Amino acid sequence: MLELHDLTKRYGDRLALDSVSFTVGDGRLTGFVGGNGAGKTTAMRIVLGVLATDSGTVTIDGAAVTATDRRRFGYMPEERGLYPKMRVLEQTVYLARLHGWAPVAARRNAAELLERLGLGERLDDTVESLSLGNQQRAQIAAALVHRPEVLVLDEPFSGLDPMAVETVQSVLSDAAAQGAPVLFSSHQLDVVERLCDDLVIIADGRIRAAGSREALRAEHGSERWELLTTGDAGWVRGVPGVDVVSFDGGWALFEASTESARHAVLAEAVSRGDVVSFGREQTTLAQIFREVVR
Rank of each mutant, 00 (worst) to 15 (best):
I140A: 13
R70P: 03
G39Q: 07
D161T: 08
G273C: 00
V239S: 09
E3N: 10
A142H: 02
G37S: 05
L285S: 10
R194C: 09
I201V: 15
R107A: 15
Y94K: 04
A96I: 09
L123E: 13
A261Q: 05
Q282Y: 07
E78F: 11
R87Q: 13
V182Q: 01
D124Y: 03
D198N: 14
S257L: 14
T57W: 02
S21V: 00
L132W: 07
Y11V: 09
V20T: 09
G238W: 08
V93T: 15
R280V: 15
G221A: 08
A215E: 15
D248L: 11
D274W: 00
Q282W: 07
R122C: 05
N109Y: 11
K40F: 00
E166N: 14
V24P: 02
E90C: 14
M76P: 03
G100Y: 13
K9A: 06
V168L: 06
L2D: 11
L89S: 11
I140N: 12
R224L: 14
Q139S: 06
A64P: 15
M1G: 09
G250L: 05
D54W: 09
G221F: 04
A180L: 02
D190W: 02
L7S: 01
V239M: 03
E128A: 11
L119H: 05
T283F: 07
A52C: 06
E155S: 03
S131L: 02
V145I: 09
Q135D: 09
G49C: 11
R217Y: 04
A218F: 01
L2T: 07
H5T: 12
G279A: 07
Q136V: 14
R137W: 06
L113A: 12
F184K: 12
P240V: 10
A215H: 12
G100W: 10
D204C: 08
F289P: 01
D18A: 13
S212M: 00
V265H: 07
G34V: 12
R206G: 13
G12H: 11
G231M: 06
E291L: 13
H187N: 07
Q136E: 07
K85A: 13
A209K: 04
V242F: 08
G231E: 01
D274N: 15
D124C: 01
V239P: 08
E128C: 05
E268V: 06
A256F: 04
